[in-house]
Structures are given as C-alpha cells and as structure tokens.
C-alpha cells in the first residue's frame, strides 16, 4: 500500500517530465527530418554541414566562449571581495538586483547609453578621446552580454567561496605559501565546482542568444539563435530550425558532460 501511494504521488511529475521535457525534445528531433514541403529527408543535416552554418556555429561558440570568459574574469574577483565584506548578503542582493529587470529593457537602455550621443560617448568626449562608434560592435555585444550574465556567474562562485573553510587558507599561509600560491593551489581548486556551474549557466544560453545580436550588435554578429528564429518565424522552414536546435542540444549535452561535477574528498 505504501509503495503504491508513493507511485501515485509520482504521477504529476512523470506527466510533467513527459509533456514538457521528453516530448519537446522528441518533437524537435522529429521535425528535423522534414523539409520545407513536409517531405521526409536528411537534407537539413546535410545543409547544416555547409560553410554558412558551420561558420555560424563557429561564431556562436566563439562569442559564447568570449562572453563566458569575460564574465568569469569579472565575476570571480567580485565574488571573492564580496565574501570579505561585512554586509555580504546585502551587497550580493544589490549585484543580483539588475537581473530582476527585463532583459529587453536593459538592452534598450544600452542602445541609449552606447549611442553616438549617449552617456558613454559624452564621457569619451570629456576625457578627450572623442566620439567612437560603440553600438553595433563586438565590444558592445560582449559588454552587454557580460553585464546580463554576471549575476548568474557570481551566485555559484560566491556560494563556493563562502563555504570555503577559512582554516585551510590560514594553514596555507602558515606553511609559507604566498598569496598567489594559496589562491592557485588552495582557493581556486576548492571553488572549481562553483566556477563550473557558473560557466554552464552562462555558456549554454550565450550559445543561442538572439535578441541582443540584433539590438546591440545590429546583426553584425550572427548566432545559431538568430538562424533558428528566422527559420521558425520568417521562412517557416521548421525542419531546418529544428535541425539547428538538435545540434545545439547535442552541444549542450557535451558541455554538461565535460564540465560535470565530480565528487571531491576534501572537507
């Protein structure tokens, strides 16, 4: 009776997973085998391996890599400093606050800030560098993406650093390790799990960003996300859109495996 009722309670979760996790993936896979006229075909997969899509895949990965790297470079020191401050929870909240604002709103704000007559250029004018084109460049695209993803990177790293046993750092100091060695040999390896999950949370969505590529990069950066949007909404070539999505899913699974958590014996 007990195990029966337990199975009974499982039903909603099984239905949920079947409907909203398994079904969509199967549907994406299913659609990827149909061409624009609804004929069964492998052409979509062949088409994916043409220079246009390979180049697009490469540039998606390249930009996602840059975004993740810069986000990490900014997030790690911030998280580290945060753990050293008195009101760390309050400061953490302040850093996370911007993620409560809608992404599009932030993107539109950056169009204003980075514009020819925007705040950023006024500043450059004042310090004597003069007006530069900032909007619609790689720089603005990566800057805005890093800004948007930053809270997602900070949270796991902050948690990892916060849980770090301070006596390990003290021990390292006592045994004569320099600050750099302590960081390299003790702090960083112990927080690597936080870094890994932060990178996952940033890299995977960064791979298929699409609104920012138009709003901030003016379609000068084309990612797989842009292509999926176009195939589904404009061309109505659901097959090709689904094929790209299949490759994205494969890429994400690979990334999850590569950066997956391994149990560690310390602590």
């Amino acid at each position: 009776m007990k195990s029966k009722s337990r199975n009974f309670y499982l039903i909603p979760y099984v239905i949920w997973i079947a409907l909203f996790v398994v079904m969509p993936i199967l549907l994406v896979l299913y659609y990827s085998f149909f061409d624009i006229d609804g004929q069964l075909t492998f052409d979509n997969y062949k088409k994916f391996f043409t220079p246009v899509y390979l180049k697009m895949t490469f540039s998606s990965f390249w930009y996602a890599f840059l975004i993740t790297m810069f986000t990490l470079l900014v997030a790690y020191p911030i998280s580290y400093l945060l753990t050293k401050t008195k009101h760390k929870q309050l400061l953490l909240l302040l850093i996370i606050l911007p993620s409560w604002i809608n992404l599009l709103l932030k993107a539109y704000a950056f169009i204003g800030i980075f514009g020819t007559y925007g705040a950023a250029n006024s500043f450059l004018e004042v310090i004597g560098i003069g007006t530069k084109q900032i909007l619609f460049t790689d720089f603005s695209f990566i800057f805005v993406s890093v800004y948007i993803f930053l809270p997602f990177m900070i949270l796991p790293i902050f948690n990892a650093l916060d849980e770090l046993n301070p006596s390990l750092v003290d021990a390292s100091n006592d045994l004569g390790a320099s600050k750099w060695i302590t960081f390299k040999r003790v702090i960083f390896p112990l927080t690597i799990d936080g870094v890994k999950s932060g990178c996952q949370i940033v890299f995977i969505p960064a791979l298929s960003l699409f609104m920012l590529t138009r709003l901030i990069a003016g379609n000068r950066v084309i990612t797989l996300g842009t292509a999926i949007e176009q195939h589904f909404l404009v061309t109505q070539d659901w097959g090709m859109g689904a094929t790209i999505a299949v490759f994205l899913i494969i890429a994400m699974v690979l990334i999850m495996i590569l950066t997956g958590k391994r149990k560690r014996g310390i602590l």
Binding site: Y117, N219, R220
Partner: peptide, 17 residues
C-alpha cells in the same frame, strides 16, 4: 552598413545615429 535592425531603426534614425 552600420547595422541591420528591426523597428528600432525609427529611434536610431531620429536620433541621427
């Protein structure tokens, strides 16, 4: 070409971007 945009072009052109 400076950019390929959607409806934002109205604001951008208006602001002499």
């Amino acid at each position: 070409i400076k950019a390929i945009v959607g409806d934002e072009n109205r604001l951008l052109l208006q602001n002499e971007e």
